[in-house]
Deep mutational scan, measured.
Amino acid sequence: MTEYKLVVVGAGGVGKSALTIQLIQNHFVDEYDPTIEDSYRKQVVIDGETCLLDILDTAGQEEYSAMRDQYMRTGEGFLCVFAINNTKSFEDIHHYREQIKRVKDSEDVPMVLVGNKCDLPSRTVDTKQAQDLARSYGIPFIETSAKTRQGVDDAFYTLVREIRKHKEKMSKDGKKKKKKSKTKCVIM
């Protein structure tokens, strides 16, 4: 069974824990209790493949930012979460993405942009803004509501699919490099 290491990042209060708990335990946590770091595991079937999701729910508070490099190193894919009623959390996505790329030393890291709290009427981040940002990053965008469960499975499952595509691409690139290195030079 394939294991996928997913990391949920975003500013404090955007609903990272609520999304994760909704996926794992099928219930909505409405009281806000700032996370330092929590880890969850769940076995699911995605596109006919049974897999184990190892999900790291991270601290959004700035005082825990020193811990970010460590979990970013171990993560295979990242859910970059903002709240649709919090423009600052949307603007912060850029910083999370840049930090992930720096730590992973790669421009090509599996990510999904997630606009959470889409059940709320007080939207300050337009869907088109988020779609445009995701398009500019070359990553999928999904709106979710941890409260109603809308888009929750889709967000995590899409990230797994992005990781699969990335692994497939990397193995193809690896095979191309191996083929090239088999060419021999004969000096007579």
Rank of each mutant, 00 (worst) to 15 (best):
residue 3 E to Y: 05
residue 4 Y to G: 05
residue 4 Y to P: 02
residue 8 V to P: 00
residue 8 V to I: 09
residue 8 V to A: 01
residue 9 V to F: 06
residue 10 G to C: 02
residue 12 G to D: 10
residue 12 G to F: 04
residue 12 G to I: 02
residue 13 G to E: 09
residue 14 V to Q: 07
residue 14 V to I: 12
residue 17 S to A: 01
residue 19 L to I: 07
residue 19 L to Y: 06
residue 19 L to H: 11
residue 19 L to S: 12
residue 20 T to E: 12
residue 21 I to L: 14
residue 23 L to H: 14
residue 23 L to F: 09
residue 24 I to R: 12
residue 25 Q to C: 02
residue 28 F to I: 10
residue 33 D to R: 08
residue 33 D to Q: 09
residue 34 P to M: 09
residue 36 I to E: 13
residue 37 E to V: 12
residue 41 R to D: 09
residue 42 K to T: 07
residue 44 V to A: 10
residue 46 I to V: 11
residue 46 I to T: 05
residue 47 D to W: 01
residue 48 G to R: 06
residue 49 E to W: 02
residue 49 E to D: 08
residue 49 E to V: 06
residue 50 T to E: 06
residue 51 C to Q: 04
residue 52 L to C: 13
residue 53 L to T: 10
residue 53 L to H: 06
residue 58 T to I: 10
residue 58 T to P: 10
residue 59 A to M: 07
residue 60 G to L: 03
residue 61 Q to N: 08
residue 64 Y to I: 11
residue 64 Y to P: 14
residue 65 S to T: 07
residue 65 S to D: 12
residue 66 A to P: 14
residue 68 R to M: 13
residue 71 Y to K: 10
residue 71 Y to A: 11
residue 71 Y to T: 14
residue 71 Y to H: 09
residue 71 Y to V: 12
residue 72 M to P: 09
residue 72 M to A: 09
residue 74 T to W: 10
residue 75 G to Q: 04
residue 77 G to Y: 04
residue 77 G to I: 10
residue 77 G to N: 00
residue 79 L to T: 00
residue 80 C to D: 00
residue 80 C to V: 15
residue 80 C to W: 05
residue 83 A to T: 04
residue 83 A to K: 03
residue 84 I to Q: 15
residue 85 N to Y: 13
residue 87 T to D: 12
residue 88 K to C: 10
residue 89 S to G: 04
residue 89 S to R: 01
residue 89 S to Y: 01
residue 90 F to H: 07
residue 92 D to E: 11
residue 94 H to E: 14
residue 95 H to M: 03
residue 95 H to P: 02
residue 98 E to Q: 06
residue 98 E to L: 02
residue 98 E to P: 00
residue 100 I to T: 03
residue 101 K to L: 07
residue 102 R to W: 01
residue 104 K to R: 13
residue 104 K to M: 10
residue 105 D to I: 02
residue 105 D to G: 15
residue 106 S to V: 08
residue 106 S to D: 08
residue 107 E to T: 08
residue 107 E to K: 04
residue 108 D to A: 04
residue 108 D to E: 09
residue 108 D to Q: 07
residue 109 V to E: 01
residue 110 P to C: 02
residue 110 P to H: 03
residue 112 V to H: 01
residue 112 V to M: 02
residue 113 L to Q: 00
residue 114 V to T: 01
residue 116 N to Q: 14
residue 117 K to H: 14
residue 117 K to S: 09
residue 117 K to M: 15
residue 118 C to K: 03
residue 118 C to G: 11
residue 119 D to W: 01
residue 120 L to W: 07
residue 121 P to S: 13
residue 121 P to N: 10
residue 121 P to R: 10
residue 122 S to R: 08
residue 122 S to W: 06
residue 123 R to L: 10
residue 125 V to Y: 10
residue 125 V to L: 12
residue 127 T to E: 13
residue 130 A to T: 05
residue 132 D to E: 15
residue 132 D to K: 07
residue 133 L to D: 04
residue 134 A to K: 04
residue 135 R to C: 05
residue 136 S to P: 01
residue 138 G to I: 01
residue 140 P to W: 01
residue 141 F to H: 03
residue 142 I to N: 11
residue 142 I to Y: 10
residue 144 T to K: 00
residue 144 T to L: 15
residue 144 T to P: 01
residue 146 A to F: 09
residue 147 K to G: 14
residue 149 R to L: 12
residue 149 R to M: 15
residue 150 Q to G: 14
residue 150 Q to P: 03
residue 151 G to D: 13
residue 152 V to F: 11
residue 152 V to M: 12
residue 153 D to N: 13
residue 153 D to S: 14
residue 156 F to R: 01
residue 157 Y to D: 13
residue 158 T to I: 03
residue 158 T to C: 06
residue 160 V to I: 13
residue 161 R to T: 14
residue 162 E to V: 04
residue 162 E to C: 08
residue 162 E to L: 06
residue 162 E to Q: 11
residue 162 E to D: 04
residue 163 I to C: 04
residue 164 R to D: 09
residue 164 R to A: 04
residue 164 R to Q: 08
residue 166 H to I: 06
residue 167 K to I: 03
residue 167 K to W: 02
residue 168 E to N: 15
residue 169 K to C: 11
residue 169 K to D: 11
residue 170 M to E: 05
residue 170 M to R: 04
residue 171 S to R: 15
residue 172 K to W: 07
residue 172 K to Q: 14
residue 173 D to Q: 15
residue 174 G to V: 12
residue 175 K to Q: 05
residue 175 K to Y: 12
residue 176 K to S: 09
residue 176 K to F: 09
residue 181 S to F: 02
residue 183 T to C: 13
residue 184 K to H: 13
residue 184 K to V: 00
residue 184 K to G: 13
residue 188 M to D: 15
